[in-house]
Simulated scan of single mutants.
Amino acid sequence: MGAVISWAEHQCLYKIEEEHVSDLTDSSSYLQGVSSFYKAKRKAFWQEILSHFGGKSAELLSFDEIKKRLRLREEHYRGLQDIPVDRIVGSVGRYRDFTSTFLPKKDEMVERWSRIYAQTHSLGGLPPIEVYQVDDVYFVRDGNHRVSVARQIGAPTIQAYVTELPTGVDLEPGMSEKELEAAEAHALFLETTKLNTTRPHHQPIKLTEPSRYHELLGHIFLHASLLERERGEAVTTEEAAADWYDNIYRPAVTLIRKYNMLELFDERSEADLYLWMVDHLREVREAFGDEARSKRFSDAIVDFLTERKIPVPKDLLYERDPSVIVTETQAMKAVEANGNDTEHGAHHNEQETES
């Protein structure tokens, strides 16, 4: 029994017969393209259905939205490159026409899609596409149908003229909305602190909870106040952020790595653990006041291990990292005083960090 074709497929095949295509090879490739297109479109239908049940978006990312959310401004032309097809995650203008894996959604795309499919089998091949690169992913500026066909035929790479928009934020294919919110908050943090400029090789400061970047900014604004008091002169946010990173954050991360603390925290980052240590020291100080024994990051790690009956490394007991004094309410006041963007509606635990 022959395969059943849809009315749209029938009309497309009828149109080919009417055109009296002289090149039988091209005609055959075009027919294969039509068949492949409708197979891909059916896959698109099921991908969108399954996305509703699986909670994972089947949509391409909008380049303009990502550019706005990540505050991307600079552009640098990188020339012609072979780029991985599976790292193309969005489009400038056609992000609603394809699924996240570039499966076509609309019947009216069949003719163009099929002609491009046929062209891939010709001696001339296809011209390079044009893309924007953000971190290690790409957004199509021109050539969406070519990417769609390339994915359907299993091409691992495609030639592209690449324009890069530099960012200190990590992007990966298949990111959830929560992960994109975290990337957006991270971008705001970097724009405010300028750590990418003052400390271009700094350890990534990635939080799994987007709202908590606000707390980190509070720490930095308070640190600026402390430096001004110490130096007797104005200190910029950039200067304070660099000093905070060198003298507070980086020593904490050094301890986290030295004692392999991330192995005890599933799906958490070093920045998450830094904030946990600050929270813990604040709670201890609230409970015991100036008599509190735990005043350093190393003390917080000792407390954590002791509470869970995990052996405490002897070296940890003799660490001499900077002491941390934490008080309530002041971090939020520092954020408000600096007019910081509160667009994320964060829940804030107000803190002061002092070395």
Rank of each mutant, 00 (worst) to 15 (best):
S6T: 15
Q11M: 09
K15Q: 13
E17R: 14
Y38S: 06
K39P: 00
F45C: 01
F45Q: 08
F45L: 07
Q47L: 09
L60S: 05
F63R: 12
I66M: 14
I66D: 02
I66G: 01
L70C: 02
R71A: 13
E74C: 09
H76S: 12
Y77W: 09
G79A: 00
L80G: 01
D82V: 09
G93R: 05
F98W: 00
E111V: 14
W113N: 06
S114N: 02
S114C: 01
I116L: 08
I116E: 05
Y117N: 04
A118D: 01
T120M: 02
E130L: 05
Y132M: 08
Q133V: 04
Y138T: 03
F139L: 10
R141N: 14
H145C: 09
H145V: 10
R146D: 07
V149T: 09
A150T: 10
Q152D: 14
I153P: 07
P156R: 13
T157L: 10
V162G: 00
P166C: 09
V169P: 00
E177D: 10
E179N: 01
E181C: 05
A182V: 08
A183W: 00
H186L: 06
L188M: 10
L190T: 05
T193S: 05
Q203S: 06
E209A: 09
E209V: 13
Y213T: 06
G218V: 03
A224V: 05
A224F: 02
E228P: 05
R229M: 12
G232C: 01
V235P: 01
T237W: 02
E238P: 03
I248E: 13
P251A: 10
A252Y: 03
V253K: 01
L255G: 05
K258G: 04
Y259R: 06
N260H: 15
N260W: 12
L262T: 08
L262D: 05
L264I: 11
F265C: 06
E267W: 12
S269P: 04
L275C: 07
A287F: 07
S294V: 10
S294I: 08
K295A: 03
F297T: 09
I301H: 03
R308H: 01
K309D: 08
K314H: 12
E319Y: 07
R320V: 14
D321R: 00
V326E: 00
T329S: 11
K333W: 12
A337K: 15
E343N: 15
A346Y: 11
A346V: 07
H347C: 12
E350K: 13
Q351G: 09
E354M: 10
